[in-house]
Write a protein that binds this DNA or RNA. Sequence first.
DNA 1: TTTGAAATCGTGCTTAC
DNA 2: GTAAGCACGATTTCAAA
Lengths: 154, 154
Amino acid sequence: MDTVDRKILELLQADASLSIAEIAASVGLSQTPCWKRIQRLEGQGVIERRVALLNPEKLGLGLTVFVSIETNDHSEAWLARFAELVAAMPEVIELYRMAGDVDYMLRVIVPDMASYDAFYKRLIAAIPLKNVSSRFAMERVKSTTALPLDAVTA
Amino acid sequence: MDTVDRKILELLQADASLSIAEIAASVGLSQTPCWKRIQRLEGQGVIERRVALLNPEKLGLGLTVFVSIETNDHSEAWLARFAELVAAMPEVIELYRMAGDVDYMLRVIVPDMASYDAFYKRLIAAIPLKNVSSRFAMERVKSTTALPLDAVTA
DNA sequence: TTTGAAATCGTGCTTAC
DNA sequence: GTAAGCACGATTTCAAA
């Protein structure tokens, strides 16, 4: 993992539809070694997948909610069940287990408040939760999937 | 935007490296009309871009932090400056303006606690903030970029 | 051992039906 | 909407540094 690798990753994070020729030219390599590096990065799992990003507003998915959850049950089994439950809920874009006073944090995307209410009811009916608190987003100011490779030394 | 469009988007959200032939077969269309639909969805901006998703752990980016911010200044000018500032900070993956007691919410990715501390100091030095509260993630349980198209009627 | 040039082969994209 | 053809880009092979 050197500077050239990082440059390649930087480019692919921004636009995965770039051709090998374009990437090779940008990083100052010819096609074959550039292609081999990309293959290696995919093989190593550094590049996990290539996906299409959709515009939520254009699809009528206007509401983003950050949900903080506290639980009484901190067992492995409870988490396993919670994880499985959430995996089956497509509205939940992200779920993190947290340090500190809040146990879990979810990011949820739904069309509107009515849909969120329905989601919320489904969630609290599905599994016992001690406390659930919702914060609603008014505006998406910045949003990216690009990781900060500047900070990376690996 | 019909069932076939949604099916196409569903597939591309999961894997943007799929060939037109594969997508066409999955949705029960031949290649040309399938290709035309994808072109239209891109032209409309429903498909915003195609990107590579990287594995943060393999890059040594192990720490995700949710940062809640309160400000005293609720002017347009303040937000414009804050937005510009944050746009230039690659550690900030997401920034939302919120309803309720918290004004802004950030998701930040850094290698470790020392890097977060450095980021935090840079942030509070750059712009006046009334209150900043950080919640640290211990484990990423679920994480996707796929929007819930089931909920969409548009 | 690693790089670059060229041939192959599978796609995307275009045209005609 | 289907089917056929052209053109381009991704792989592979092979020669050279």
